[in-house]
């Protein structure tokens, strides 16, 4: 059984998410919009470590990211839901390794995350073209980066959880 969360240094890599969010490297932007770093870290973590760990990681990332952003909008519910969903997918079916599958999961996850921010705005009647533009740009960029970054993380996390073979 996977127990990625027992390796504390693995959990510490989650610090890269708020740091990359703050640093916002220009090279990795599409139309001025950065990828959803939380999605790119959470997807492989939850796939390897299961729904409970995925949900806890989603809540932790949500709290950290919400603390850095202004305004009342929160990423926490969507990230917690994604952690749980991806954890279940990782536990139930065969291991997900294909680039296309990772890209598709990241695309759906990023779409859900952006919709969770967009729907309250639409409810208040403040929906604008710029918000749809942000949704499209971030979803596309995250889905494109996921096969590269998530594959590497999946490989690393699975090596850690496999342990020494006798």
């Amino acid at each position: 059984m996977a127990a990625l969360h027992r390796h504390s240094w693995c959990g510490a890599t989650a610090l890269m998410v708020p740091l990359l969010t703050l640093a916002a490297p220009q090279l990795l932007k599409l139309d001025g919009v950065a990828p959803a770093w939380a999605v790119l870290w959470l997807l492989p973590w939850a796939l390897v470590d299961g729904p409970v760990s995925g949900t806890v990681a989603g809540v932790a990332l949500g709290l950290a990211l919400d603390s850095l952003q202004l305004g009342p909008a929160s990423e926490l519910p969507a990230l917690a839901l994604l952690g749980w969903w991806w954890g279940r997918i990782g536990r139930q079916g065969p291991p997900i390794e294909r680039s296309f599958s990772l890209g598709l999961l990241a695309l759906l996850g990023c779409l859900l995350l952006n919709l969770s921010l967009l729907v309250p705005n639409a409810w208040r009647g403040e929906l604008g073209w710029s918000q749809l533009q942000t949704l499209l740009a971030q979803t596309l960029l995250t889905a494109l980066l996921a096969p590269m970054l998530c594959s590497l993380q999946l490989l690393l996390w699975r090596q850690q959880t496999a342990g020494p073979k006798g």
Partner: peptide
């Protein structure tokens, strides 16, 4: 330990990310 971590993260959230922003 995870409950402790969650409490710490709640502290970070309530302080508007002060430890994270200062560390950055």
């Amino acid at each position: 330990p995870w409950l402790l971590l969650l409490v710490a993260l709640l502290g970070v959230r309530l302080s508007k990310g002060a430890p994270l922003a200062d560390a950055y």
